[in-house]
């Protein structure tokens, strides 16, 4: 059974890009355009990994992460940060990795594979 990845990003083009890239590499994907929507998704799905943008309108990446860490259910889902900001890794201290935009496809895929396998 393929692993599921939740993609959280406000830019529809980037969501589409990540969706296609990860699907092409054998993963199932779910998308959300901000932190709030992502929480809604978690009510129905339990992803194996989350890629998380930092700056989004309304509910940001850190807001979403704090919500996750408060409960026990989702606190252990690994998070990969993908952001246009540099030097902002510390805002998601529990992230397994951080990529800055524009990222290398191989780098992302290697990190995903290392974290949840293929």
């Amino acid at each position: 059974m393929p692993k599921t990845i939740l993609i959280v990003d406000d830019d529809p083009n980037i969501r589409e890009y990540l969706e296609t890239l990860l699907t092409d590499n054998g993963y199932e994907t779910i998308v959300a355009e901000n932190g709030e929507k992502a929480l809604e998704v978690l009510a129905a799905h339990t992803p194996d990994l989350i890629t998380l943008d930092i700056e989004m309108p309304d509910k940001t990446g850190p807001w979403f992460n704090r919500a996750l860490q408060r409960g026990k259910t989702y606190a252990n889902i690994p998070i990969i940060v993908i952001t246009g900001h540099t030097g902002l890794k510390y805002v998601i201290p529990n992230a397994v990795g951080s990529l800055s935009k524009p990222f290398e496809q191989k780098e992302l895929l290697d990190l995903v594979r290392e974290t949840i396998g293929s």
Partner: peptide, 21 residues
């Protein structure tokens, strides 16, 4: 601008990837 450009570049790469694939 650099933040915006990074986002656009990523999205462009995404477009190129989807075009190629």
């Amino acid at each position: 601008i650099s933040h915006g450009v990074k986002g656009m570049l990523t999205a462009l790469e995404g477009g190129v990837y989807r075009l190629e694939s």
